[in-house]
């Protein structure tokens, strides 16, 4: 799917993750930057998860920055889902 706009979700609090998304033009691919307070232990899992969710939404061209403070998997998935639906302009039931 084609991203419509810049979007973000999450916070810099402990146990949360901040996701920033910027649409890229066609064929530019995925540019993913991940930093985490638990990079050594969970960095690989985190990057796999980000790619899986992007696959799920069929997003191929994106610049995504993830700043993780030890978020658990359901939180990471939720923040990705929120940021992506916002970037797709598909967010529901919220003020912009």
């Amino acid at each position: 799917m084609e991203l419509q706009r810049n979007a973000q979700a999450g916070t810099f609090e402990s146990s949360d993750i901040m996701i920033l998304i910027e649409p890229l033009k066609n064929k530019q691919g995925r540019k993913i930057e991940i930093s985490s307070s638990v990079m050594l232990q969970y960095g690989d899992m985190l990057s796999e998860l980000v790619n899986n969710i992007l696959d799920k939404y069929e997003i191929e061209n994106v610049h995504l920055i993830a700043k993780d403070k030890g978020a658990l998997e359901p939180t990471i998935i939720a923040r990705l889902e929120t940021a992506i639906t916002r970037a797709l302009n598909q967010q529901k039931g919220t003020l912009l």
């Binding site: 638990v38 050594l40 232990q41 969970y42 960095g43 690989d44 899992m45 658990l72 998997e73």
Partner: peptide, 9 residues
């Protein structure tokens, strides 16, 4: 199960 198995150091 909550945290997911960490990669060993």
């Amino acid at each position: 199960e909550i945290v997911g198995t960490a990669k060993p150091i």
